[in-house]
């Protein structure tokens, strides 16, 4: 895992502050621009296709980049399938993400918590 934030240091705190303020404004503005979109009108299209869950190898159903083997962890990385849409077609792409990334970490914690229950 590579940590950027530990290395990029020595930034003028004033600049940092300005930056944070601008970033916050950007986020807020983005959020607000979307809030008007009526949630009720929104159609959900979030079903995970069965073939993805089952690890189907039918290339016509999903375009999986390569890698039959879905080893869970390799060299500190976790292999995940990113589900995307190409037009109306669902497809997955595989990619490695660092095991210490917050996405993996939070999922793991969640799993652990569920096991404990």
């Amino acid at each position: 895992g590579v940590e950027i934030r530990q290395k990029v240091v020595q930034i003028d705190p004033k600049e940092q502050e300005d930056f944070d303020r601008e970033l916050k404004a950007l986020l807020q503005e983005s959020l607000e621009s979307r809030k008007s979109e009526a949630r009720s009108r929104l159609t959900l299209n979030m079903m995970v296709p069965m073939n993805v869950l089952e690890g189907s190898k039918d290339p016509r159903a999903i375009e999986s980049e390569s890698g039959e083997e879905t080893v869970d962890e390799e060299g500190g990385n976790v292999r995940v399938k990113v589900l995307m849409k190409k037009g109306h077609k669902q497809q997955t792409k595989q990619m490695l993400i660092p095991a210490d990334s917050s996405l993996v970490q939070s999922t793991k914690q969640q799993e652990a918590a569920e096991l404990e229950e």
Partner: peptide
Amino acid sequence: SAKSENVVV
């Protein structure tokens, strides 16, 4: 991520 699989969106 999906609750059970290594699938993310």
